[in-house]
Nucleic acid binder design. Structure first.
Lengths: 343, 343
DNA sequence: TTGTATGCGTTATCAT
DNA sequence: ATGATAACGCATACAA
C-alpha cells in the first residue's frame, strides 16, 4: 500500500533514497553532490516516477517559465502561423505558452491580461486592439503591430515599405489607375502605414490612386457598391488594386468575378500578409509577404532578453513580394503556376 | 516608498485593511464576512491593485484550472480551427490552455506530456501519434482520432460513414471507376476507417475502386507516377477520386492539372476534413466535413466532466458532405459558386 | 559536502 | 463571524 495516493514529492524521494530533502533538490537542479548520493537519489526518482511540481517551483521562484500569447484567433491563417511559430520559439527555449484567443474583444483582451498576471507569467506577447489596455508595468509585454506606450516594444513588419512595394509593383506591371481598399480596425496601428506607403509609392511612380476604407462595422458589400460605381460599359476604371490584407483581396476577387471583371487580365490585385493555403503551400493571391518567422522569433527574443534596457520601441522587419496569380508577371513564377493550376 | 517592489500579497491587503489574513481570503473566495469588513478589504484590494497568485492557489489546491492541448501544429487549417475552438470552449469554462505543438514528433509528444504533468494540469487533450505514449493515469486525458487504451476516451468523427458518403456521392454523380488515395501515418488510428468506409460504399454502389496508399516517408510524387500509369490516350481511367484529406486532394488536383486532366469535368474529387479558406470561407474542394465545433466541445466536456465513470471509450460525431467545386453537382450549391469565382 | 530550517502566497482548520 | 496557524512542495541560506 502506498503512503499517499497523490503524486510523490521530494520528501518521498528523500525518504526512499535515505538522504535529506536538500540533497534531492540539489540533484534535481544539477548542483554537484557526492556521486553515491546522486545515484541513490536518481534511482529513487525513477522508482517513484517523481516529477517536480512546477507550481511549487513557481511559487518559490516567482518565475514560471510561462508566456501568455494574446491573439484574436487561430482560424485566420496568418494568426495561426504566427501562433505556431511563437510556440516553437518558446518551446525551444523551454518556455510554456498560454494561448489566449481574444476574438478581437477588448474586454476579453483585458481579462486575459489580468489572468496572465495572476498566473505570474514571465511575459506577454499580444496582438491586441483595446486602446486602453491596462498592463501591470512589471510584466514584460511585447506588442505586435501596435505601439502601446513608451516602455512597450512593438514588433511589426515594414508596413510602409510594403505599401510602397505594392505601388511600385503595380506600376512595373503596367498599371496606371489604381485603388487602395482597406477594412478593419479604425485604431491607429502599424498596418495603417500600408496606406501611406502605397499612396507615397503611387505618387513616386505616377499612378493615379483612389482610396476606399471601411470601418469595422461596415458591411463588406460596401466595396461591391464602390466597385460597381467605378465601372463604365462593363469595364472597371482601375487596372490595379492594392488590398490591405489577403483576406480582403480574396473577397475583392470574388466581387470582381460577380461583376464580370477578370483577374489579372482586367485588373491586377496585390494583397498583404502572405497567407498560404494549408499554411505552407500556395499563396492565395499576389501579395506582400510578412516575415512571420522573423516576427515570431523577434517577439520571443525581445520579450525574454534580460537586458530590459536598450529595447528599441519599434522593431520593423522587412517584407517581400510574392506573385500569386493575381498579377501579370512577365516571368512566370513558381507560385503563380501552382496557384493557377487549381483555378 | 513602497514596502516591496514585488506584487502585493494577501498579507499586504490584510495589513492595509487592518484585518486578518483569513478574512481577506474569505472575501476573495466569496465566503460571507461582515459587511464592514468586506468593504474595507475590497477597498484595500483595489487600492493596492492586488491580484491572487494562481501559483500559490495551485500549490494549495493541486488543481490549476489549466488544460494542455497537444496538436501537431496550428499551421494546418484543420488543426488551427480545432485549436481555436478548444480554446474558446475552455475559456468559456474559465480554464487556461497550454498550447503544445508537437510537430508530429513522438519524443516532443512525450516531453509535452511530462511537462504538462509537472505543471499539474487538470487534464490533457491530445491529437498524438506516438504509439507508446506514457501517460500518468491520474491525469485525465482525452484523445482525438486515436484509441489509446481502455480508460482513455477518444473523440473522433464518423470516419467510416464519411468514407461511405464519399463513395455514395461519387456514385450519385455518375462515377463508375474510382480511386482512393491516402498518405500519412501508418499508425492504426481512426481516420484509417475512411478507407474501409469508402471501399464498403463502393461495393454497395457498384463502383470499381482501386486504392493507393503511401507511407509517411514516401514522396508525394509517387501519386503522380501512379496517376500517370493510369492514363491512356490522355485520358485518366478514373472518373472519381476520394482523397483521405483535403490537403491530399489539393495536391492531387495540382498533379492532375499537370497531366492535363480537368477537375471536375474529367474526374471528380472529394476530400476529407472540410478545410476552408481563411478558416471560415470557401471549401478548398468538395469534401466530407468534420464537425470541428462539436469535436472541440466534446473533448472539453468529456475531459472536464467530474463523473469519470460512464465515459464511453469512443465518441463518434457525424460528418456531412459539402460541395466545393471539384464535383459536378446537378444543383449548384453556395460553396461551389463562390469557390469557382476565384478559380 | 550534506542536512536543517525557513519562507514563498494561499487556503482551511481551528480556537476565540 | 473573526483571527491565528498549519500545511501545500520546493529552494536556499545557513548550520553541521
Amino acid at each position: 500500500m502506498r503512503k499517499k495516493s497523490s503524486a510523490p514529492t521530494m520528501k518521498d524521494v528523500a525518504q526512499e533514497a535515505g538522504v535529506a530533502l536538500g540533497t534531492v533538490s540539489k540533484v534535481i537542479n544539477g548542483i554537484p553532490v557526492g556521486e553515491s548520493y546522486r545515484i541513490r537519489v536518481e534511482a529513487a526518482i525513477s522508482k517513484l516516477h517523481y516529477q517536480v511540481n512546477s507550481y511549487a517551483q513557481g511559487l518559490k521562484a516567482s518565475s514560471t517559465h510561462t508566456v501568455a500569447v494574446l491573439i484574436p484567433n487561430t482560424k485566420n491563417s496568418y494568426f495561426a502561423k504566427l501562433t505556431n511559430l511563437i510556440n516553437l520559439s518558446l518551446t525551444r527555449r523551454k518556455y510554456r505558452m498560454l494561448l489566449c484567443c481574444t476574438d478581437y474583444d477588448p474586454s476579453f483582451e483585458q481579462e486575459y491580461i489580468t489572468m496572465a498576471q495572476q498566473n505570474k507569467v514571465d511575459g506577454i506577447i499580444g496582438l491586441t486592439y483595446n486602446p486602453n489596455l491596462l498592463i501591470n508595468p512589471d510584466t514584460p509585454f511585447v506588442s505586435i503591430d501596435r505601439i502601446m506606450g513608451a516602455n512597450i516594444p512593438c514588433v511589426t513588419c515594414d508596413n510602409f515599405m510594403g505599401g510602397q512595394m505594392a505601388a511600385e509593383k503595380l506600376a512595373d506591371l503596367g498599371c496606371q489607375n489604381v485603388a487602395f481598399l482597406r477594412i478593419g480596425s479604425s485604431l491607429t496601428n502599424e498596418p495603417n502605414k500600408r496606406r501611406a506607403g502605397f499612396e507615397n509609392g503611387c505618387l513616386a511612380h505616377g499612378l493615379h490612386c483612389e482610396t476606399k476604407m471601411l470601418e469595422d462595422d461596415d458591411s463588406i458589400e460596401e466595396f461591391e457598391i464602390f466597385l460597381r460605381e467605378r465601372m463604365q460599359n462593363g469595364r472597371l476604371e482601375f487596372d490595379g488594386i492594392f488590398c490591405s490584407t489577403d483576406l480582403l483581396a480574396y473577397h475583392t476577387i470574388q466581387m470582381l468575378d460577380k461583376l464580370g471583371v477578370r483577374v489579372p487580365e482586367d485588373v491586377q490585385i496585390i494583397g498583404f500578409d502572405g497567407v498560404q493555403l494549408f499554411g505552407e503551400l500556395d499563396y492565395i493571391c499576389s501579395t506582400i509577404v510578412q516575415p512571420v518567422e522573423d516576427i515570431a522569433e523577434m517577439c520571443v527574443q525581445t520579450l525574454l532578453q534580460d537586458t530590459l534596457t536598450a529595447r528599441p520601441p519599434l522593431i520593423c522587419l522587412p517584407v517581400s513580394y510574392a506573385a500569386g496569380g493575381t498579377t501579370k508577371e512577365s516571368v512566370p513564377q513558381n507560385h503563380q503556376i501552382s496557384t493557377r493550376s487549381i483555378r
